[in-house]
């Protein structure tokens, strides 16, 4: 089992470091992006797919994948859905407020392994957030990758995360971007249906592709099945798994899925490792 042994913060991985809220941007009615800058010292250095633990004074702490470019040295961005107590409290933050950040934690997306070949990025709903840093990284070094396809599925046209960026990416000639929704009004001129159905139309060579998938578990299951059926090597299909993370350093036990601690053995895993684990109900 590989583990990411990045030494996060100077005070130790259990103690947060203060970050200031520079900006809060509402992406959707229930989803917002925080832009955070370190109060002192260097910005957190991370790789796409890694997770930060954000601590809100008086509310608690939650794990959020970092969705900004890993090349930025001024700030990190966290895209958060206001679902529970902590994420709703964080939604009330204003520019200038302090939060605590611990991280980065976890095994990142296999960017180095993906270089030199085709890349398929498949995102569902808010799953686009952990993959946005992948797209940024690819665009930074675009010539080191071959054909790059991005397939995004969401609930309906009003639910598209990073909609403006999606359109920018779609208009690029060096990216093949397809978007689909589960349902739409008749004014929608795009696709309606499963994100898997977009894949056969896209411009990647299954025999030479690395796939990175993020979304609800059921979506990742049918997408990975679809990609494998198309001929993508199972060892090159990567998923990011989700369970509650508390300590994020492999000591509290909560994030276990079978023998894997999602916080240090994941959350990114190649399909063969997690496929048997996803098959067992309530594992």
């Amino acid at each position: 089992m590989t583990s990411a042994v990045t030494t996060p913060t100077a005070a130790g991985p259990m103690v947060p470091v203060p970050y200031r809220v520079a900006h809060i941007h509402w992406e959707l009615s229930d989803t917002y992006t925080l832009t955070l800058t370190p109060e002192s010292g260097a910005n957190m250095s991370f790789e796409p797919g890694q997770v930060a633990m954000i601590y809100i004074l008086g509310a608690g702490e939650v794990p959020i994948s970092v969705s900004s470019s890993s090349r930025r040295d001024d700030a990190i961005q966290l895209t958060i859905r206001a679902g529970g107590y902590v994420t709703k409290a964080a939604a009330r933050l204003a520019a200038g407020d302090t939060v605590g950040i611990r991280g980065p934690f976890g095994v990142p997306w296999p960017m180095e392994q993906a270089r030199g070949g085709d890349v398929v990025v498949v995102a569902g709903g808010i799953g686009l957030a952990p993959l946005r840093s992948v797209i940024y990284e690819i665009l930074e070094d675009r010539h080191t990758f071959e054909d790059v396809s991005v397939a995004y599925g969401s609930r309906d046209p009003g639910f598209l995360l990073y909609e403006a960026e999606l359109h920018d990416w779609r208009s690029r000639f060096d990216l093949d971007v397809e978007i689909t929704v589960d349902r739409a009004p008749t004014s929608w001129r795009g696709d309606v249906g499963l994100v898997t159905d977009l894949l056969p139309r896209m411009e990647f060579d299954p025999a030479n592709a690395t796939a990175m998938i993020c979304g609800p578990e059921i979506m990742m299951k049918f997408v990975s099945r679809g990609l494998a059926d198309m001929g993508v090597d199972r060892e090159r299909i990567y998923l990011t798994m989700e369970r509650n993370m508390k300590c994020a350093i492999g000591l509290c036990g909560h994030c276990q899925l079978g023998p894997q601690f999602l916080c240090k053995d994941g959350p990114v895993f190649p399909l063969p490792v997690v496929e048997p684990l996803m098959e067992v109900e309530e594992l």
């Binding site: 005070a11 130790g12 259990m14 103690v15 947060p16 470091v17 203060p18 200031r20 109060e39 004074l57 302090t98 605590g100």
Partner: peptide
Amino acid sequence: VESGSPDRFVA
């Protein structure tokens, strides 16, 4: 944690 500008985290 001591709240302030900024908050201070003490191990």
